[in-house]
Amino acid sequence: MFVLVGVSLLTFMMTVIIPADPAARWAGVRATAEQVAKARQELGLDQPLPVQYLRYLSGVLRGNLGVSVRTRQPVMVDLRAYLPATAELVVVGMAISLAIGLPLGIWSAVRKDTWVDHMCRAIAVFGVSLPTFWLAMNLQVLFFRWLGWFPLGGRLSSMLELTTTVPHLTGFLLLDSLVTGHWEVFGNSLRHLALPALTLAAYPLGLVAKQIRSSLLEVFGEDYIRVARAYGLPERVVTYSYALKNAFGPTLTVFALCAGYSLVNTFLIEAVFNWPGLGNYTAMAVTTGDYPAIMGITLVVAVMYVILNLIVDVLLALDPRVRV
């Protein structure tokens, strides 16, 4: 709770020190001095700072994040419209990173110091060293320009978008089209999702693999594993039944950190792939200097990040095996 108040205070302070005059922006390009003064009054910018903060806070609590200068819509409305596409991307990307990262890390730990380990570690380090947007651009060149397998960007082909309407259930296009049996949309959106999701997976993949490897190695050094081995339990049982369970805790923490990171990483990925989500919205807000939108997103993402970390803490606390 304290952290949340702090977060709101920090974002508020950032909105105050904005270099540009929001009132002038609000009043428009050809505004006169009087129009600007009127806008300042309307926006409450003539009030003392603590009053402004309280107004801001009460607004935030009621879901009012201000109005975007670029779209002229409440930032909250925009966020709600763009969030599902981003969530879909993050979920699929994170799933891919788990699907590849976990086995990679485990394999690496089991075969520690063999060529397998070196290769897995190299892949992992490579994953965290790639500039996201560069990876995205290269995937585009490779899979769109040269191979022609995947589309360059967007979430759905425009003709398909025009001719079919998938009911809006969850906002996850994949899920909605699957449930309602729009196979063409499902396939099309999967093809559109492939490259951005792979790009997103690269970073968490490396970290997850690295973390599960080092946690496993740590656990392998523990007495109870040595005891288990001494009892002659098969290595497979030792690894999967005993060690892995205990190595999951720290990996979960890293995974949550990654999810938060990926949420921000979408800013770059969506901009490159023209994915109609929060990230693209933010990138546009940044290029057009749309401060209310930037601050609104900062606040919302920070809150999501805090909650995510809280969930992980709770999960870890519920698990008696985890030593804090």
């Binding site: 952290v3 702090g6 270099p19 990483n265 800013f267 940044v286 920070a302 990040y305 805090v306």
Partner: peptide
């Protein structure tokens, strides 16, 4: 540490983007 906590509750890239956008 409370101040640190507040800063840590932002993903670093996000905070960097927000601050850089503000500073010009």
């Amino acid at each position: 540490m409370r101040v640190t906590d507040i800063f840590l509750s932002f993903p670093p890239l996000l905070l960097a983007i927000a601050v850089a956008a503000l500073l010009g």
